[in-house]
Design a protein around this nucleic acid. Structure first.
Lengths: 153, 153
DNA sequence: TATTGTTATACTCTATAACTATA
DNA sequence: TATAGTTATAGAGTATAACAATA
């Protein structure tokens, strides 16, 4: 145990710095902040970016498919789509084959916003590559993907 | 662009899987879920664990020092410490040298809860090491630490 | 019966402004 | 004046239960 007198911030977290969860969380916050800072004009948050990108790349997918792909709850997608629809970025189109489902499409305005966000994201990823190197970036993604399938307990 | 008909979840996120931010977030959620699942008895969330651990390892540090170390807002620490105090885990002791500050200490009960949480965290980290290997784990932490200092813009 | 989208709700995490008491 | 802790508040993110319409 260390005396608290004169303790500096870096010292206080020494034990936590060896914890994957802690370092992972701090890095994730920094990356998201950089993602936000990279935006110009209309600001799209990471979750919104993911939704717009998947709709843009897979026009006509249903809300349920989108939720399963991004691991978000159906109930939580509703408000985001309501906002995108009110901004004229996304259209919900009744599915002809299944009267319960709605297919999602980007409007021209939505495609433009997505395009700007993609440009910003490229600058953002370029800063990450500058920090890690291309090889380090690839290693990081591989290591993170291994964590996504941790045994349930 | 891919047809949405018959699209599977894994297909829909193909573009995002190359994004560090997306993979990082998904991994962070999985790691935190595993951290929670590793607990037995009293459940401590990751943020609570960090607070208890830093107090336990650096008894007598002030709330402000704790906040700077963990990058949390002073205002947001108050409720957590109120809860810990009401549970008898933490004591706030007026600082003799600075009448504004309060020094933090774990009670015996708090130390016991922390000890159990540390045991759980060791099992949690062991699962991570099993998934990544010791070398992969070290590489991951190094790569993540480089992301924590991304240029502001 | 089961599923899709929806509503309502609640809890956690985070952020800002303003207050108080001290320095 | 500046700082430490606090209060109040608001915005995101996430989770569950229940409902209507449809399968």
């Amino acid at each position: 145990m260390t005396s608290a007198s004169g303790a500096r911030a870096a010292e206080l977290t020494r034990e936590l710095e060896a914890s994957v969860g802690y370092v992972l969380r701090r890095a994730q916050l920094a990356v998201f902040a950089d993602f936000i800072a990279s935006q110009s004009g209309a600001v799209v948050r990471p979750g919104q970016f993911a939704v717009l990108l998947v709709i843009g790349m897979h026009a006509g997918l249903t809300q349920n498919q989108l939720c399963e792909a991004l691991a978000i709850k159906r109930a939580n997608l509703v408000a985001m789509l309501d906002e995108f629809e009110s901004l004229g970025f996304v259209r919900r189109v009744p599915c002809s084959r299944d009267g319960r489902a709605k297919r999602l499409h980007l409007s021209t305005a939505g495609a433009k916003v997505l395009s700007q966000a993609v440009d910003a994201q490229k600058r953002h990823e370029a800063r990450i590559t500058a920090a890690l190197g291309a090889i380090g970036r690839r290693q990081l993604i591989d290591l993170l993907n291994r964590l996504r399938t941790l045994p349930a307990s």
